[in-house]
Design a protein around this nucleic acid. Sequence first.
DNA 1: TTATTATATAATATTTTAGTTATATAACAA
DNA 2: TTGTTATATAACTAAAATATTATATAATAA
Lengths: 116, 116
Amino acid sequence: MRNLDHTFAALADPTRRAILARLALGETTVMELAQPFEMTQPAISRHLKVLEDAGLILRRVEGTKRPCRLAPDATREVDAWLAMLRKALSANYDRLDGVLAAMGPAKHAKKRKGRR
Amino acid sequence: MRNLDHTFAALADPTRRAILARLALGETTVMELAQPFEMTQPAISRHLKVLEDAGLILRRVEGTKRPCRLAPDATREVDAWLAMLRKALSANYDRLDGVLAAMGPAKHAKKRKGRR
DNA sequence: TTATTATATAATATTTTAGTTATATAACAA
DNA sequence: TTGTTATATAACTAAAATATTATATAATAA
């Protein structure tokens, strides 16, 4: 799951998320991406490399430009992993639900030693 | 969106994802969490703090123990953000679909200057 | 050819992260 | 009270990430 590391890490940076949000509107060049940020062009190039390595964007060559776009299956792995968590959460919720139902009202004091 | 930073960053570490996967099975203590890892207890405590700050887990006090569990709405913000991306991706896909349909077969050479 | 444009890469400084050991604290057991 | 258990915190180190400036490269324009 080495790649989940990269993908989540790539998503953890606000500049990179902003870049992705911009790319959600469609393909653009590096310069165009860099413009709204108070950051040098090399910094943006590095961010793009991180996004590319994470599998979040694709780049093609067009003359001297390198237009970027979202990778079609960008969030697939991440989605799968989060789905696991969500499933666990709803399972836990159901379990709690069952426990509460089984206990009925006002039968809360169980054998646990501590306070609650 | 400061918190998205924290949540994604927390998810970027394999140890922390393993901890979450373990918690998906149910609440446990710090020691129990630490056991499968080749890592000291303080290291695990720090990971737990990161997860807590990211809103991914909750902790309660039970005597000398601090049982952890998944936060019920752990992935909510993250899910929302990723949903935005997915939506954009499918929109882009539909758009491409439309373009291809409009072009019909074998009418690919458009006005763009470069090779393709 | 030479200049310009769009982008990448290298060297470097700064900050952040992740781990370690040592130590503190609070609850429990004896 | 004293020792033990479960966990947290501090001090520190090492490694990784982020940004900067300076420079390289490759395509286009003149």
